[in-house]
Every structure is written in structure tokens, then in C-alpha cells.
Write a protein that binds this DNA or RNA. Structure first.
Lengths: 347, 347
DNA sequence: CTCAGAGTGGGTAACGTTACCCATCGCGTG
DNA sequence: CACGCGATGGGTAACGTTACCCACTCTGAG
């Protein structure tokens, strides 16, 4: 225990002096590098423990690795992100890595670029982009300067790895489920596209397109009712209000995410309608809270824990030198609960 | 637009060469330092823009500021944190600062220490600790090495600033509200204390103590019913189940947070009871989602936006050199909604 | 006309770490 | 016995930036 108020940081030189070896030797021990005897390792480790030394990250960043993974999230309002982050953290911390997060700003490509720049400027060893709203070109530019894994987009690129949920399967499960229950007038709430380019790689686009496709396959193309708002509670509220004004009213709503479904439930309740009596509602993400009894929302589970774990592993591999791009898709499953049921009156 | 695949970062030297000035001059412009003419400033700025230069943060960290604020959150599952973070970001970004977040691990002092170490190692200019679970001594140790603001704790320290909600006022508002409605058997769900020391500075402790005090003041000390679980949906669910087994059953539950209240609603629903018919429920935080029609939870609003903004300002001031400690308390307000009502049968 | 002092710009030595290279020591082999 | 080579440890030059100090040029007052 060192006393004294304004104490200088313990540096690698202090450790080297204390162990009577060179700074190079200490550095080798720290990095598990080649050319260190067991005796040397023990001696240095003892000095490190005794002095309470921790490597200075900024200094490391000047020469080598920072042992830091940057995670860019659109925002921290979606509990699904928490599951991904927890799994990622667990996967990388065993290898001495630390995750830092920055907010990208929902569907704001400019803010997102600033945020990813911030990570690059802070010299992270790898970046995980969670559901980014920017263009593929921007992602590739990023991937050129730092190992990159993109989560939740359907792009294919030779420069970065992808971890994603097979949103086509998920959306199909929902729509087929609703149709099998007997619904014909099924509405969908999706996210307004942020970019003029309308990148077909965005998960909300896939879900919406699949909804349209499955509807058409069942000869229900004329029943398609899309509300384009946002993947938030507010978006769900507005989207549902809009769908409820249609005549005839939909008997089921496929919400693009659980948050959207949550907002939709509010609008439905406010309109004096019952779930699932008057309207069935299904979400996407299987967030923890929607499982609870008073919500009990039918939803698509996309196993965020596995996605986070894989994303971490892919990042470590890329940092380790892998150049070939990898794509990993989770196959989602449908979890039916009490928010979906056959429509009240047929025909 | 520079081409070439593996391109080197643009450095301050490149900018200096391009503008035909010294690196010192460029550095001065970057930092808005004294001793730069308008002509110099313009010339350097032009070179910066032309080359697309961005300062290398790690290099800065070796000598001066990193223009980075570290935010330690227990987790990212509480939407209230998002409000704080948004306001903080807005406040500091105007001054060129960027916020990075790390997860502290809920109620795990060891994980929390690792996380705050990680921020210090990454040479952040200031740290915002949101609802930390560690001891005051640990916070003071941190504050000795980096400007620190603590949000959501009631400690008083000469070494760091505090931003907090007056949880005593908030808890009082809730309990007084329930009593005024006619409730006598009022239960409370709180968080089990993580530390053996039982720091009276934790917000959950304040809320629980205030609940007990107000109950006693109304001669309801014998009606006190405490369930100690966790500030999560699961904690609320378990806590409510426990309280519902008591005989006679409480007619109202004051949940320590909105998430807790949310879980409690599930347990109440599962037990076949109605809210507020059979049981009133009140939360704390006034999270956005609980305002929605189908939840409509009575809650305490503690204005996270102002707290985040103030926290940012205090950090900037501390980085600027202020040494005197500051304490800023927000006075919360009660927002009554449809989850609280008079008990069904009096007496 | 001299000189003080403000205003401006630059030279340089750090900051803590690692990559690269070299020196040394044993030991086994031709 | 000489030689080569693997194993080990160390010396040193970066990495990009800023703090500190110094040099030079004006301007205006004495």
C-alpha cells in the first residue's frame, strides 16, 4: 500500500527496476511473448503484484494493442442490446480484453460516423457495430482501418464479418403463425428508412419484405397494411394508431420489435380493444420483460447471448490475423404466448 | 480523397508540413491555446480540413487531455440511464468531449472496480459513476486519480461531486400518496444490500428507510412489509409474490423502481388480482414506457435529463480545475396514473 | 533612439510502451 | 574442439502529441 496524495502512476520502468530486469523483459511477460523463462516470469509477476502495476493503455496504443473492443450501439434503450453486450463481455474478458461502448444515435448516419471515428481515434483493437444505419461503403471504410464485426445487418462484404439473425425466417414464422390462426387482415409496423438509398440489408427492411412476401404467397397481397414509424415504443404507438384507423381494421399486428409491440399494446388498449380478443399482437426479440404474465407477448427469439458470444470470438480471430470474412446467422424460433389467438369472428 | 489500401493515419506533422508551419503551431490551434494569430488559425484549419486530420487520442493521452469522459453504468437495462446519458452527451459534446461507457456489473463491487480501472487506464479526463455499488473509500481513491462525479448516491465527500435525486422526498411522496388514498397495509420491494457494510448512502436504502419512517409517522409501523430482492423485473416479480403471501395481504405496493413495479405487476396478474382494484402499485423513475396506456403506472419523476446535464457540467468544471466539491440534488415529483386508487374495502 | 514587454511562432524533450534487432550463454553435433 | 543454433535477456528507436521554454518582431513610452 503506497501512501501520499498525488501519486505518480506505476510504470513498466518501476516494475523493471523493482525486479532488477529490463523493461523489455517486463513487456514480454505482460504480452505473453516468446523468449521468457519460467523464473523470469515469476520474478516479474511478483514485482507487478507487489507494486500493483497496471499497463498504461494510452501508451500501449502508441505501439501495440490496447486490448479494447469498441462497441457502437444505436442507443441503450433496447434491452436486447444488453444481452449481446453481456455475452460479448464474457467472451472477450477471458482474453484480457475490455469492451467500451459509444452511442451511435438512432438512425442518424452522421452521429454514427462521429461515434465510430471516436472509437478509431481511441485506438480500439476491434469494433462491433450493432445494427448500424450507415452505408455498406462506410462500414467497409471502417473495416479497412480496424477489425470490424457487424451485427444485425444482411450485407455481405469481404472486409468485415457479419453476425445476424435470419430475419427472413423470423418474420416468416410470425406471419405464418398468424395466418395459421386464421388471420387475414394482418398489419405490420416497420421503421422508416433513414437513408435515401433504402439499403435492403437493414433488418427492418428484411422483416417488412418478408411480411409482404408471405402475405402474397397466401393470396393476401391485398390485405397488406404497412405503417412505417420507428423501432421504439412511440413508433409502435403511432403505428398501431394508424393501422387501427383502417377500415376494415386489421385483426392482427406484426410489430417489428418488442418495443414496437409494447407501444402498439398501449394504442390498442387506449382504443378500448382487447388483446388477443379483438387484435392479436406479435413482437420480435423476445426481450425478457415481455415474457412477464401481464404482457405475455408472442415474439421471435433470436438468442442474443449466442450472437454476442460469436461476435466476440470473431473479433478476437480478426485481431489475431484472420483476413477471410465470415458470416454467422442465428436461426430464430417463435415463442407463442397469450397475445396471439384466432380472430374472434371468421369470414 | 486519398486512395490506397493500407493508408497511414494523417498526423499533426502532415498537417504542419502541408500548412508550412510547425507542429507546435498546429497543436496550439487544435487546443485553442494562447499565442495564435487569426491568419495562422485559418491556415492551419484549412490544412486540417483538406487532409481530413483527426487528432490521435492515444498520443494525446500521453501528454495532455483525451477529451473523453468515462461513464460507468451498472448495466444498460435501465432506460432511465439512457436519459442521463443523452443529456450528458449533449452537454459535453459542445466542448469537444466524447463519452464512453463501460458496464460495472450490477451490485458487484469487484467487477465495478475492474471497470473503473479500465477507464482510468484508458486515461479518461473525467469519470461519471452512475449508482455505484462500491464503498465511499473506493470512490475517493478513484477521485484522487481522476475528476469524478457520482450520480445517485447520498455520500458526502470533499473529493468528488454528487448529483442525486432527493430519494427521501420521492419515497415520501409515494408513501404519503398511498396513505392519503386510504391504504394502511403498504408493502415495499427493495434491493438486497450487496455489501456487508450496508452503506446508508445507497438510494435503495434511503427509499426503504423513508418508507419505514413515513409508515411509522402514520402509526403504521406494524404494517411495514419489506421484501428485499433486486432492482430488476425479476426482483419485482419475486418481491411481489412474497408480499402477496402475507396475511392479510397488502393493499398497495411501493416498488423501488419502475422495473421492479413492472415485475410486480406480472406477479399480481398471475395471482388473479387486479390493479388498482385489488392492489395499488407505484414505481420510481417515471421511465418512458410505463407511461403508456396499458401500464399507466404511478411513479416518481426524477428528471434524468437535468441530472445528466448537470453531471456533464460539473465534470467539465472539475477538469477545468475546480477543486471544491459540489452537491446537486434534484427534487422529484409524483406522477399519479391509473395504477393507484383507494383500496376496495375500508376497515 | 533605446528598451521593455506584448504578441507570435518554433524547437525539443518528454509521456509509457512495444517491435526490432543484437548479445550472450549453453549445449549438442560434426 | 570448433561451430552453429536455440533459448533467453536487453538496448533502443520509434509511436503522435503537448508543455515548456526560447527567439524574434513589433509597438510605444521614456
Amino acid at each position: 500500500m503506497v501512501t501520499g496524495d498525488r501519486r505518480r502512476r506505476v510504470t513498466i520502468t518501476d516494475v523493471a527496476d523493482h525486479a532488477r530486469v529490463s523493461t523489455t523483459a517486463v513487456s514480454k511477460v505482460l504480452r505473453n511473448a516468446y523468449g521468457v523463462s519460467a523464473a523470469m516470469r515469476a520474478k516479474v509477476q511478483a514485482a507487478i503484484d507487489e507494486l500493483g502495476y497496471r499497463p498504461h493503455n494510452a501508451a500501449r496504443a502508441m505501439r501495440g494493442r490496447t486490448f479494447t473492443i469498441g462497441v457502437l450501439l444505436p442507443h441503450i434503450r433496447n434491452p436486447f442490446f444488453a444481452e449481446i453486450l453481456d455475452a460479448l463481455t464474457e467472451e472477450i474478458s477471458g482474453h484480457g480484453y475490455q469492451a467500451i461502448m459509444v452511442q451511435g444515435g438512432d438512425a442518424d448516419p452522421e452521429a454514427e460516423r462521429r461515434a465510430s471515428d471516436a472509437l478509431v481515434d481511441r485506438q480500439v483493437d476491434g469494433v462491433l457495430m450493432v445494427a448500424p444505419a450507415c452505408t455498406k461503403a462506410q462500414l467497409e471504410a471502417l473495416a479497412r482501418s480496424v477489425p470490424t464485426v457487424v451485427l444485425g445487418r444482411h450485407d455481405r462484404s469481404a472486409l468485415y464479418d457479419c453476425v445476424l439473425d435470419d430475419d427472413e425466417v423470423g418474420a416468416e414464422l410470425v406471419v405464418e403463425h398468424l395466418i395459421a390462426l386464421g388471420h387475414r387482415r394482418i398489419g405490420h409496423i416497420t421503421q422508416r428508412d433513414p437513408l435515401s438509398g433504402r439499403p435492403a440489408a437493414l433488418l427492418q427492411t428484411i422483416r417488412a419484405r418478408t411480411y409482404e412476401r408471405v402475405m402474397a404467397e397466401h393470396d393476401l397481397a391485398d390485405q397488406i397494411a404497412l405503417a412505417a414509424t420507428a423501432y421504439t415504443e412511440e413508433g409502435g404507438y403511432e403505428g398501431a394508431r394508424e393501422l387501427l384507423t383502417r377500415a376494415p381494421r386489421p385483426t392482427a399486428i406484426f410489430a417489428g420489435s418488442d418495443q414496437v409491440a409494447f407501444g402498439a399494446l398501449a394504442a390498442i388498449h387506449e382504443a378500448g380493444l382487447a388483446v388477443p380478443g379483438d387484435i392479436s399482437v406479435a413482437g420480435y426479440d423476445n426481450a425478457r420483460m415481455i415474457r412477464l404474465a401481464h404482457i405475455s407477448l408472442t415474439s421471435v427469439d433470436q438468442n442474443g447471448a449466442i450472437m454476442g458470444k460469436i461476435a466476440g470470438r470473431l473479433l478476437l480471430e480478426r485481431i489475431g490475423g484472420r483476413a477471410a470474412a465470415v458470416r454467422f446467422a442465428v436461426i430464430p424460433t417463435l415463442v407463442t404466448r397469450r397475445s396471439t389467438a384466432p380472430p374472434r369472428s371468421r369470414g
